[in-house]
């Protein structure tokens, strides 16, 4: 596409040759991103089940969520006040940093019986259509593979209850179909997936 995107694509391609690991990012952490890593973990690899990992998330997803927090459409006691003070350029800078970080191997162990059931639900409810076959996300759509379990469950419950900001209505309409049991299985399945490209 161009130099910048080409470099990202090459980096992403290079990543696929290495098994994911929790090694700290080699890159210098921008000052603004250091505050994020207090909760979101070094390099944006969270160790708190309730806090999402940012490492390797699509840049557009990160900047859009920060924007939604600042605008007040998405609400969180920690994130809302932080986002309130960020400029668009700040958000883009944070998105550019965290998208470059390598996702760690998942700490979550999925229940064995949920591997097939989770995949079936992910296909039945078309998760794989937007989030991609390996659930790695693209553009404004997040990576789900290896994301924290409690965080995923909270988001799905929020979409189902129509209280989670939804940019285009897709998640709200699909989550309405999910049972609480579906949500448990999906969150368990997704959070145990290795976040690596095939």
């Amino acid at each position: 596409m161009n130099g910048h995107h080409g470099a990202v694509a090459m980096f992403a391609a290079a990543l696929s040759f290495f098994p994911p690991c929790a090694a700290p990012a080699a890159e210098e952490v921008p000052q603004r991103a250091q505050a994020c890593t207090v909760c979101h973990g070094p390099g944006g690899n969270s160790t708190d089940p309730a806090v999402p990992s940012l490492a390797g998330q699509p840049a557009q997803f990160i900047s859009m969520q920060l924007f939604l927090f600042r605008q007040g459409d998405r609400k969180d006691p920690q994130m809302s006040p932080i986002a309130a003070n960020l400029s668009n350029a700040d958000m883009n800078e944070l998105a550019a940093y965290f998208t470059r970080q390598r996702p760690a191997s998942p700490s979550h162990q999925s229940a064995r019986e949920n591997a097939a059931a989770g995949r079936r639900l992910a296909e039945q409810y078309h998760c794989v259509q937007c989030h991609g076959p390996a659930l790695l996300g693209l553009q404004h759509i997040p990576r789900l593979a290896g994301q924290q379990f409690a965080y995923l469950r909270t988001q799905l419950r929020g979409f189902k209850a129509k209280i989670r900001a939804d940019f285009d209505g897709n998640m709200t309409s699909v989550a309405e179909l999910l049972s609480e049991r579906d949500i448990e299985i999906l969150a368990d399945y997704l959070s145990g997936l290795t976040p690596a490209r095939d």
């Binding site: 883009n92 259509q129 940019f167």
Partner: peptide
């Protein structure tokens, strides 16, 4: 099963 989708704008520009 189509993967065609509208594209989201960069809301932060």
């Amino acid at each position: 099963k189509s993967t065609l989708h509208p594209f989201a704008i960069e809301v932060t520009g």
